[in-house]
Design a protein around this nucleic acid. Structure first.
Lengths: 210, 210
DNA sequence: GGTAAAGTAATACGATCGTACGTATAGTTT
DNA sequence: AAACTATACGTACGATCGTATTACTTTACC
């Protein structure tokens, strides 16, 4: 074991996490190395020493954002039983992840994927891979829920996953534009509706207030 | 009448349209004045002479993109009767607008709104206004369709508009990432499903080919 | 304890960014 | 014809971008 590279890895992690945070607001190409260095109180040269080039920083930011996303959204839902419960758990965790601003710009992928979806390169490939993984995750739970008969009269799991992701992404944009969390509740209600669940569950249900 | 300002307006229009095209790929801040000038075969100074600052160019690009969008998507559907027909016409026109790449980066708003949704300023305000207008347009037709009883068992017009827009935006991203038009058909099928229409209409239905 | 490795930093370089200024050209007005 | 105005262009400036080079500090292993 080498404590030196361990320390280096730690600063590298912190760097990548901060890069992801900045990119969620300014984009992966809008983010500059000076900005990143200043945000962590280190010199620009240190950033360059950790990752050679800016493209490497961008890729590291995507990887770090993916890890953060997994621990904030995927992992919490993993304790729930497969199928509809876990699917709804993923949705609720995602909405909470956006609402509490794990990234200052809302969803990292939602901010960065449209930026790079028309620019061939490693960054786009990484983003496409992350997106496919997320959609596959949703699709698997949708398929399980459907197999269990919990989603009556529903389209294919692939379509259902596509729709859930679309609603979440749109909610993220609306929320950022209006700085209001109402769109998150709208998305939740629509997803509940499409999943055939009764009313909503985690959004409202504050009846009997007294 | 002044032939000078007329000529100026013509170049200004061409400039704004090209700026929108570039921004649909590189983003409104990724676009540079040199790039814009070179794309039109003029000098960088000319761009600056037409619009004083880059922020003005960005705002002009948003305005130009809105006009292009209206003539490519909104206007064609305006000939259809209000309610469900016009709503589906808007959807079909939108999908065609993306598929035939009116903007090289797909939907201009889809590329640029996530870029600016966390950056306060005039650009974000303009994008928010355009988005609200588009959603209101969808919502009005959804309400008319619902009032006519054409969409049985549907959520509120506002929610329906939100959902249609979400599906279209997601289809645009998927299409750009994969360079495949299949996501457009998926979105169309889902929208048809949510509108309660039988199968789909404009996506497949190529029976009786002879 | 000395040495090699890795992190951190200081400095500098070329390129390009957005912008400012001066000027030539073309059209309008008097 | 002369004065005026708006467009277009060339040039130049300061700032900042990403990157390369170089030296110094810290840390772990011999």
């Amino acid at each position: 074991m080498d404590g030196r590279v361990e320390r280096g890895d730690r600063t590298r992690k912190a760097l990548a996490a901060e890069a992801a945070a900045i990119a969620s607001v300014d984009g992966l190409s809008g983010m500059t190395l000076s900005q990143l260095a200043h945000a962590l109180g280190v010199s620009k040269s240190s950033v360059q020493a950790a990752y050679g080039t800016k493209a490497d920083v961008q890729l590291a930011a995507v990887a770090a954002a993916s890890e953060i996303f997994v621990s904030a959204v995927v992992a919490p839902a993993q304790v729930l039983p497969e199928g509809l419960p876990r699917l709804e758990g993923l949705v609720d965790a995602w909405l909470a992840y956006v609402e509490r601003r794990v990234f200052p710009g809302g969803c990292f992928m939602g901010a960065v994927t449209p930026e790079f979806d028309s620019r061939p390169g490693e960054v786009r490939d990484a983003l496409a891979r992350a997106r496919r993984g997320w959609l596959a995750l949703l699709e698997r739970q949708a398929a399980a829920a459907q197999a269990a008969g919990d989603i009556p009269g529903s389209p294919s799991p692939e379509m259902l996953a596509f729709e859930i992701d679309a609603l979440l992404a749109a909610a993220n944009v609306s929320r950022n534009l209006s700085d209001d969390t109402a769109p998150l509740a709208v998305a939740r209600a629509l997803i509940s509706l499409r999943l055939g669940s009764p009313p909503t569950r985690a959004t409202k249900r504050q009846s009997k207030p007294g």
